[in-house]
Design a binder for these strands. Structure first.
Length: 199
DNA sequence: GTGCGGATGAACT
DNA sequence: GTTCATCCGCACT
């Protein structure tokens, strides 16, 4: 079942990031459904988090969507190449977000392989935020879309991870002391967790 | 208007 | 382990 929007509309962005592990993220684009199980996430705690794009209340054309209500997508371009998919959480005016860093392929694997230009499944198909976005066909055009459907959906299929690891986030050394916070969560031992290193 | 650098990934050596 | 593709977004002039 699709997770209701109320799931995203609370203050505990780290708790939401953790709770999203084991849920299924899917897209239906051009009639093609692709999906995967979320195995790795990171929490970005709005204005107080130096690693967040909204740190200090920064409000620009790009970050505007982060200030909207919880339950919508924030997709941005990184390094000019990669589209990174986040879910906005909490309510209007609080720019919390959860970055989805990796999924384990579930449905439409042939379509994902085609989008990624690969012949068979390896962890690189969907391990990493740019990789999973490409596999699911998510681009910056999808920023602002609800994650409650119809294009982007996050569903609870009843799967609960046995063990979750909390670690430091990837690629945020510039955030200084906030880079030390354990706001990266992943399913322990899962082969599709990205190889990105925290601190 | 200009310049810098990033919440990365893949192909190299 | 290292290199490099590739381009807005943002800060500052």
């Amino acid at each position: 079942m699709i997770i209701p929007v109320s799931f995203y509309q609370n203050d505990d962005v780290a708790g939401i990031a953790r709770a999203l592990l084991g849920k299924t993220l899917g897209t239906e684009i051009n009639g093609q459904y692709t999906s995967g199980i979320i195995v790795e996430t990171e929490a970005y705690a709005g204005v107080t988090d130096k690693a967040s794009h909204a740190y200090g209340g920064r409000f620009t054309n790009r970050t505007r969507v982060m200030y909207e209500d919880g339950g919508i997508a924030y997709v941005y371009l990184c390094y000019g190449i990669h589209h990174l998919f986040n879910i906005v959480t909490h309510g209007v005016g609080t720019p919390h977000a959860v970055l989805i860093r990796a999924i384990e392929p579930a449905n439409g694997i042939d379509i994902m392989l085609q989008r990624r230009g690969k012949a068979f499944v390896t962890p690189t198909l969907t391990a990493g935020p740019g990789a999973l976005s490409a596999a699911l066909g998510i681009t910056t055009l999808h920023t602002g879309y609800p994650v409650t459907g119809p294009v982007i959906t996050i569903s609870d299929t009843g799967y609960t991870p046995e063990h979750i690891t909390a670690a430091t986030r990837v690629g945020v050394a510039y955030a200084r002391e906030d880079a030390l916070l354990p706001l990266r969560f992943y399913i322990s031992g899962n082969k599709f967790v990205s190889k990105g290193k925290g601190l």
